[in-house]
């Protein structure tokens, strides 16, 4: 599997808080990678570094082997990197449909009328079809999360970064979401999915990395990665030393 996205020796800290310490990461073309790690480990910050909203202190971001570290976030979006935000960031005063039109038109460099089709289809796929004309700011949390995913998909990405899209969902809603993400995978989109709901990750991803203390303390097949002692410690509150 050739790499579509990679981080090379990336370091980032906020004052004394180190979120990445000489990190390397490779995402294969078509791969679905899960990311675990305690709150505050720096998972969301890594997405910021990949999408260009955060500048790393050192290191490079590569897309298809090309250095994109100096590109702006709109440029990276147009190259095919899409992101859903952990805390939903809708265009609140625009309709749900318009949110998707924005994403599809600007990410694809297309005229508005050319993307209505993409926007309408993506809305249906993500279960927002009947809310197309609602103001995005008036949606429930669940629908805002759906909108995050839908808007990212509407950019027709090659790399999709999902940040805790399943958090706060009921069991049934989570199943629907997992089915949707499996479908997205089938279209060949490469995915990095940050998620605390481990069984949802296990149903989708090929590999899991665990971020803690600025480093990946585990990088393995899903079943092996979650058996890593630090993962148990983080998620069960069990200390590995005991």
């Amino acid at each position: 599997m050739s790499a579509i996205l990679s981080l090379q020796s990336v370091s980032k800290s906020f004052g004394a808080v180190v979120v990445a310490n000489d990190l390397d990461l490779t995402l294969g073309n078509g791969e679905a990678l899960g990311m675990l790690g305690p709150n505050g480990a720096g998972k969301t910050s890594l997405f910021g570094i990949i999408t260009g909203t955060l500048t790393p202190n050192a290191g490079k971001v590569l897309l298809d082997g090309r250095d994109i570290t100096r590109l702006s976030s709109p440029q990276r979006c147009r190259l095919g990197i899409a992101r859903s935000f952990q805390v939903p960031q809708p265009f609140g005063g625009m309709t749900v449909f318009e949110n998707l039109v924005v994403a599809a038109a600007f990410a694809g460099g297309k005229r508005e009328s050319e993307v209505y089709q993409i926007a309408a289809t993506t809305l249906e796929e993500c279960g927002l079809g009947d809310k197309a004309n609602r103001l995005a700011g008036a949606l429930t949390l669940l629908d805002r999360k759906r909108l995050e995913l839908a808007r990212a998909l509407a950019t027709r990405p090659r790399v999709l970064l999902l940040d805790e899209v399943a958090g706060g969902l009921s069991e049934g809603e989570c199943e629907i979401l997992v089915a949707l993400i499996k479908n997205i995978r089938r279209t060949g989109i490469s995915i990095i999915w940050i998620e605390h709901i481990v069984h949802a990750l296990l149903a989708v991803v090929d590999r899991i990395v665990v971020l803690a203390g600025g480093a990946f303390i585990a990088d393995d097949k899903p079943e092996a990665a979650i058996r890593h002692p630090r993962v148990a410690e983080i998620y069960m509150g069990i200390s590995a030393d005991e």
Binding site: P74, R78, V102, F106, R151, T155
Partner: peptide, 12 residues
């Protein structure tokens, strides 16, 4: 509505 989201969605 949201400058950060606008940038992340390809708007210059």
């Amino acid at each position: 509505d949201n400058e950060m989201a606008a940038k992340s969605n390809g708007i210059d």
